[in-house]
Design a protein around this nucleic acid. Sequence first.
DNA 1: AAAGCGGTACTTTTT
DNA 2: GTACCGCTTT
Length: 826
Amino acid sequence: MVKNNYEIALRRYHFFLYFRIIMENKVRAILDSLNDEQGKAVQCTEGPVLIVAGAGSGKTRVLTSRVAYLLAQGVEPDRVLALTFTKKAAGEMKERIALMVGGYKARRVVMGTFHSVFVRFLRDWAGPLGYPQQFTIYDQSDSTAAVKAAIKELNLDDTVYKPRDVLSRISSAKNNLITVGAYRADRGAIQADTYSKKPRIVDVYERYQQKLRQSGVMDFDDILVNMNILLRDNPQALQSIASRFSYIMVDEYQDTNYAQYLIIKKLAQGHRNICVVGDDSQSIYAFRGAQIQNILNFKKDYPECRLFRLERNYRSTPNIVEAANSVIEHNAGRIPKKCYAQGDPGEKLKLIRAFTEQDEAMEIVSAIQKRMRSDGAAYQDFAILYRTNAQSRALEEQLRRRNIPYVVYSGNSFFERAEVKDMLSYFKLVVNPLDEESFKRVVNKPARAIGDTSVKALIAAALAHGTSLFRAAFLDDLEQFGLRSAAVLKIRAFCAMIDSLHQKVSSTGAYDLAREIADKSGLYALYKEDTSIEGQARFANVEELVNSVASFEEDCREEAEGAEDIFTLDDFLENVSLLSNVDIVDEEDTNNKVALMTVHSAKGLEFPYVFVSGMEENLFPSQNMLLSQKDIEEERRLFYVAITRAGKAVSLSYAGTRMRNGRHESNSPSRFLREIDSQYLDRPLEDDSFGVSGAFGSGGGFGRSGFAQSAHPSHRERWAPPAHVAAGGYARPPKPSSESRRPEAARSPISSVPAQSKPAYTPDPDFEPLPMSEFRVGQRIEHNRFGPGEILDITGKIPELKARVRFDKLGEKLLLLKYAKMRLEK
DNA sequence: AAAGCGGTACTTTTT
DNA sequence: GTACCGCTTT
């Protein structure tokens, strides 16, 4: 007996030793792949930790290793919370952790985006917060539509109260946890709104919130606001949620806003094991409330915190890193750090100068093909980045022309299609019948003889009773709002259909229910019967959406490893609503394809070869960002992000003219190009490349008399005109301004001389306006629709030039030249 | 009630 | 140049 016990104890001890050796091996394996500083950061698990991680410094490696290290120390996976900005980032980290500690443990780590993790908690506490358990989430376009509806209900002019602007105002209020009441009490905010001639924004805010409430819906910001409310007002919830975790990690901390900051603070206040990772130089989301202060002030909140700096860049060549450094040094108030790379300095950054955006695109495509031959690179090694989504067009055209496979990372592709939105609205409405925007969208799709008039009356009834459209449908005083009994019956039939589907949500698999909705709603049949080419494409999209429900369900089952959960449509919706641009693209879709995306979307990604296109003033930096020094610094960080995506080579391109909003625009090369230390560029940037002088001959050639010839169409096609021609032709050729010559001035032109920074060209008030094109008074023209005629006179200011035309058949008409489809008569 | 037209605004970035 | 809105027409 004694011996037996002894043996057991010995065995246990052996097992313990054995176990320890395995663990030590695991730990060693984890730490072996790290440099000194990374290793320290990984092992410093207790207490607050700030990791300032430069671009390409192995930030993800540190984060994943740190989680793996914690698990190897015996920490239970579900006590670790890791927050990221995109699902893609979270997914990749999970995969890497799984490689280190196995999938079983890795999957149990609570890892996801702020929004998706918090939504889970909010579901558990939906009741106390006054939401239905199956609340749904409004995306940007739903929110905008709801704001618009709120504006209309308040009888405000939606051309003054532009829904997008109002929403962004409301959004920043929410991101700073300013409720409607606090907003009303905030004299500064009210004054600002009054000053911008929109004093009733706060009323719209109030109405908008009411609508969301009645609809049982949260917008993106509400997820954060409600999380804060929950943690503030519900001690039980705070206790339950905060005590679940003993370690918290936050990625991209520089991009957190106040609401997120406060949630993290509350969750960490017990154990203070909070590790945040970020790079102040890569803070690019101020427009959605991100506060760079959060990372700068981390030390103030956690005085005992340890700081680790990851300064060695493993991604990029020294030339790229130094070029990026030289740019970011133009910003004030950064966390001091010196990023560096070792090894072969690599190629210098390449400048590409083109006449038009098409030329620019061609140059880029040629460079890609050349590079593939010289370096044996594959398509997926390339990324083309740009400031605005609209710029992808010209690039796509050229890529298609040369049969180069590419993938565009952008939100407005699949999920923005009308037919997909219709189907999704049905899904949302079935999950949450109170959802007003979804209700309005699909109530008469396919046609059920429930027209605008009926819907308007129903809205009035809902408004009067302070309830949702769905509930309003069953009121018994609907006649008072002008609804005929036939219409009421049809509406109620629709609601009954939705309700019967709604009953099945929690008991039916997502895919089965999706199919049933597609059938019962009649949407499937509606799209199927349209046999036109576009109709077939629409049908295919609806099919694809429904199929994606199936693959979602499969993914979930795989993840759950046979646990007998059923995955329902509300799970699917939640997942879809919180996808980011980079999440939407299928992994298989990126195989051997050139990637196109905005610089914002590119954050966190890397490619061997990066092209940054549209390096022009007013585009990058954006013209909307030229007003304040703060904004310029954010644009500069954005440019920094762009450059540091590259491993081997960076090409920066700019065009002399490009089409924007249907007009040709000319801009000089971006100031950021001038900010790159010239020793890292393959050639010096011409001081006077575009829009100023030089390239097209200075001054004389484009005077008043010179304009008539240069504006001839054939001439214009070959030679991109400098700015003063494209801008309308009546401005003087600018004198080479001192601003473009002096780098010091270029660094801070805004704060010192705001007047000079914007209009590079002063219009001559005495000069008679000429049309920007070939049209003259007295000329005969031919209009696409109105036929032949004669130009009587031309009035108005650029760009609103109007031509009075007497048409031979139709008489006089006033046409806006920039839109009129007419040409000189042959 | 749907389709078709003309007018208007739009392009900064996104969870 | 396009997407969207609201008005008009059938």
